[in-house]
Write a protein that binds this DNA or RNA. Sequence first.
RNA 1: GUGGAUGUAGUUCAGUUGGUUAGAGCGCUGGAUUGUGGUUCCAGAGGUCGCCGGUUCGAGCCCGGUCUUCCACCCCA
Length: 454
Amino acid sequence: MAQKPSIPKGTRDFGPAEMVKRNFIFDTIKSVFKLYGYQPIETPAMENLSTLMGKYGEEGDKLLFKILNSGDFLSKADDALLQEKESAKLTSQISEKGLRYDLTVPFARFVVQHRNELQFPFKRYQIQPVWRADRPQKGRYREFYQCDVDVIGSNSLLNEVELIQIVDEVYRRLKINVLVKINNRKILSGIAEVIGQPDKIIDITVAIDKIDKIGLDNVNTELAEKGLPRQAIDRLQPILNLAGSNSEKLEQIKKVLATSEIGLKGIEEMETIFNWLQPLGVQTGVELDLTLARGLNYYTGAIFEVKALDVEMGSITGGGRYDDLTGIFGLPEVSGVGISFGADRIYDVLEQMDAYPKEADVTTRLFFVNFGEAEQTWCLPLIHQLRNAGISAEIYPEAAKLKKQMIYANSRNIPFVAMVGEEEMNTGCITLKDMEKGTQETLSGDELVERMKK
RNA sequence: GUGGAUGUAGUUCAGUUGGUUAGAGCGCUGGAUUGUGGUUCCAGAGGUCGCCGGUUCGAGCCCGGUCUUCCACCCCA
């Protein structure tokens, strides 16, 4: 009768070996966030559906996990809608909560609710899972962790610059080669304006975002299908074909957008960011990519995306500036900017590169063989002393065969094994074995502690 | 949400036109070695062939459904 247990599609268990690597990623990211003065917060896994709906576009609403109301949730539902099986309309009657889709919208809600307790500009980081009812694929999960850093309550482009520095620092520490792509929604708006299609900005951005993947011709076809007139598509071509350095691209696009106030504003922002960034010694490549759009429609200024250079993978970090996300919750005129590191994709990238530091695999540093009750009693105070000195140590819980205990230590990747049997107890010393070199030495208790500290 | 692949031991994978008892490497357990792991040698355990149903004298293999994973689209971390 026992059935095989399983977990929902797109979710995963993490064993010790995976958790050690995941924690390495989280710890690295967190330490950089702290280094730049960001403060941690957490918010609930579930939010009111009214907080989440409508923030991510039509597609996003579909991908939200909705939670059924408690109790007899159907009793309040409209009979007519039930009969028609109108799921979309019925949702609001049977579900008022949902799992968060990202960390930015819950953060905006948090800021509005706690505005009087916060000191602005507020710099926070948040590392928590989010859920999307997407169809899983490689690098795409239904439950995954985002590591967000945001500054809210400051219009300064210094924040954008700082976020690029953070990206540079994080990926340098993780030893992943990346390229930062940057663009600006104001430039995209300017383009839409100049070609006479300001209301088609979403369609235009979604289409040109795919240029790397499907090529220029297919982008043009898609634009025509979305109802853009021939003339407008023609005027778009020089923009899509821009080449050269960042400043060269900006010079060229400046001429095209000469009549668009918003477009010129976007160019000015980009110039400022590049100018401020220039002397800071950022090693990661930062490239202006006018075809970078990003789907989330709350972005209003700079938008970022980070791609791994050595591994085929979707973007591993993304973000941008949102001028009025808190406005929806009743706090207007507060601008924020932030980015999100996708921990699970970073994990996949490191896994493919096989680039984890060896130490990441070590949990216990010194393992004590258990030869029996008398030996065990002799060892325990010493183990306590080692732990007080900050050395991770453990003893096998029973006097199993030596071979079995050695195999255990070996499979746990424990670098040192201490052996205290009858001989050692009589002379008051410890035999220490280096598991990697295979060498052994005899030490006193104090010498052992000193030796392990190195 | 649309289209297409996939599933066999803990794991990676073989398995002939449908035909006796479903195999291998790695891993695991025990031994060679009662105070020495990672190398070697010997022996052994381990499978509702994803699940449900159908066709057939007979199904791991054929058919239908379902679930998982993966790929493309869509979108995104």
